[in-house]
């Protein structure tokens, strides 16, 4: 019992930075889990990745003007992410370039601009900070931002849940009843970018998308309903935050990758054992029913 306490609880009792890191991760998980699940259901799993790269140049510009300031970098990242999402969406609507291709084109542009800016104006240590973040250095302002974004995300998703889900499931029907699927798609993209911005301080721009996608992809292997998948994704994201932080503390690992690797391990385990899509349950031969 005592050992369990030392293993799981003591790090958070003893150190303030661990407590803040934990609160940050839990708040992130609440927002990122559902957002990731909607990305998966809309077959946009890789768009999240593209957008996370797109956030970088904005964060770099913020960094050049204000140094390592979260509001400046966050605002810059948000503007850059939204711009790439909008321009890519418009290009695919008005030219013959498909949406995934135009996303790829614009995020590559944005990524190279970002890396260029940071290497020209910042030291490499700063670049690493932007790319990989550090959850153990989040201050109260950052926590407030992450918590606000998580709350806004959950409230907005609750409001637009039905049209957003229907737009993934049967877009032609939504159009035929005269509802504007595009508007909900746009609101959703704003939420994606907001959550990436929330994630980059704690996990870095490249890692933020991991907490979004891995729990969501894993959830599909466990749950058989949309509501069930949402709760599973959140639960998996929460436990990845907690488990990753503890691993990073006990084994002296960088926190961002530890959290994402923890989520990744849950995914690999689920691939093997999950009842709804795992490999092993499929191998167990069950005799077929009479009808």
């Amino acid at each position: 019992m005592n050992e369990l306490y030392t293993l799981l609880v003591q790090p958070f009792i003893e150190f303030g930075f661990m407590r803040r890191g934990l609160v940050g991760c839990l708040a992130l998980a609440l927002g990122c889990g559902p957002i990731g699940l909607f990305l998966v259901m809309r077959r946009m799993s890789l768009m999240g990745d593209a957008l996370s790269h797109a956030v970088l140049p904005g964060a770099a510009i913020g960094f050049i003007f204000a140094g390592l300031s979260l509001p400046a970098m966050g605002l810059g990242g948000f503007v850059a992410g939204i711009s790439v999402a909008l321009i890519a969406g418009l290009v695919s609507r008005f030219t013959s370039v498909r949406e995934d291709a135009s996303f790829a084109a614009f995020y590559l542009l944005a990524l190279s601009v970002g890396v260029l800016l940071v290497s020209k104006y910042g030291s490499n240590v700063d670049l690493i900070h932007i790319l990989f973040g550090t959850v153990l250095a989040v201050d109260d302002a950052a926590l407030l931002l992450v918590a606000s974004i998580a709350s806004l995300t959950l409230l907005t998703l609750a409001v637009i849940y039905r049209p957003l889900l229907l737009e993934s499931y049967d877009p032609a029907f939504l159009q035929s009843v005269g509802a504007s699927g595009g508007a909900y798609h746009l609101i959703f993209l704003v939420l994606v970018v907001l959550n990436l911005v929330a994630g980059f301080q704690a996990l870095g721009t490249l890692m933020a998308v991991g907490l979004m996608m891995l729990p969501a992809i894993t959830a599909r292997l466990w749950a058989q309903s949309v509501g069930g998948m949402l709760l599973t994704a959140i639960a998996l994201a929460l436990s990845s935050g907690l488990g990753g932080l503890l691993c990073s503390y006990h084994f002296d690992l960088p926190s961002g990758p530890a959290i994402i690797l923890f989520a990744g391990s849950l995914y690999l385990l689920s691939l093997l054992f999950a009842p709804a899509g795992g490999v092993l349950p499929r191998l167990i031969r069950q005799r077929h029913l009479a009808h």
Binding site: M41, R43, L165, S168, Y169, D170, P171, A172, F173, S176, A223, Q224, S225, V226, G228, M229
Partner: peptide
């Protein structure tokens, strides 16, 4: 009420 040809409904979603 409109039923499109080969409705493009994503039936892999657990609805």
């Amino acid at each position: 009420a409109y039923l499109p040809q080969a409705a493009q409904i994503d039936r892999s979603l657990p609805v």
